[in-house]
């Protein structure tokens, strides 16, 4: 579904991504893990069109997308649930969800999609007219995810969903991500919470200093000495 080949990207004159190749197949949860500054968010920004790749190719459903503006990419069916949630804090929950359905096709179905999102996140329904900034951290993450689903995406890129959440809520969020996959949404999950991520994902890529240093199915990753030492503290 998503295929990245030999991607290089710069911030100014500093190279952040070095020859990154990555593949996400339909129906998978693919984890992208790595520490702060490894280039995870840069990779996401390049895929969603917010940053231009210097070289390399990005294909979505076999169409090259590396030179498309981000609004076109999201119309094609890639939804990005950004790090730090980036909610429209002074708009209410409903408005936040509605704006998620901005891409042309999604706007037509927004009534139906909204019902669906409320089924996944019943608490958002109760909070409909509340301003987004008055929600708790967990609820805000749910809203960000709900907003991302409103565009009826084929691929959901979820960036650091566990960031700043209580351990119980983190488990809930991961459960929801798993259930989204079971509903047929393909997911690229970017996380620092390595253990939980590897437990729910199908395959994983490990990014260090802008390079992919390991890839494979999650069981292999979990068993690897390097992962144990560097990310799980064992």
């Amino acid at each position: 579904m998503l295929e990245i080949n030999n991607l290089n990207a710069f911030y100014g004159s500093i190279q952040v991504l070095w020859d990154v190749s990555l593949k996400v197949n339909k129906g998978e949860i693919v984890a992208l893990i790595g520490s702060n500054g490894a280039g995870k968010s840069t990779l996401v920004r390049t895929v969603t069109g917010l940053l231009r790749a210097t070289s390399g190719s990005i294909k979505f459903l076999d169409h090259p997308i590396e030179n498309l503006p981000s609004h076109v990419i999201s119309e094609m069916g890639i939804s990005h649930i950004p790090e730090g949630r980036r909610l429209f804090t002074d708009m209410n929950v409903l408005e936040n969800l509605e704006i998620g359905a901005y891409p042309r096709n999604a706007w037509k179905n927004k009534g139906k999609t909204l019902e669906h999102v409320f089924q996944i996140f019943p608490r958002l329904k109760e909070r409909g007219h509340q301003l987004a900034r008055t929600l708790s951290g967990g609820e805000q993450q749910m809203l960000a995810m709900g907003r991302g689903l409103m565009s009826e995406p084929k691929l959901c890129i979820i960036d650091e969903p566990s960031n700043g959440l209580a351990p119980m809520v983190v488990l809930e969020v991961f459960d929801i991500i798993k259930s989204l996959r079971d509903q047929g949404i393909t997911i690229l999950l970017i996380e620092q919470n390595v253990r939980h991520t590897l437990e729910i994902s199908d395959r994983a890529y490990v990014l260090e200093n802008g390079r992919v240093v390991m890839e494979g199915d999650c069981a292999t990753c979990l068993a690897s000495e390097h992962i144990k030492k560097a990310y799980l503290g064992l």
Partner: peptide, 26 residues
């Protein structure tokens, strides 16, 4: 229309608005 909602979201967080698939400059 959805333009109104888009304008509002641009005012609050332009980058997030771009994430939503809004052609912000347009």
């Amino acid at each position: 229309s959805k333009f109104g909602l888009a304008l509002q979201s641009i005012g609050q967080n332009e980058e997030a608005a771009a994430h939503m698939g809004i052609n912000v400059t347009g």
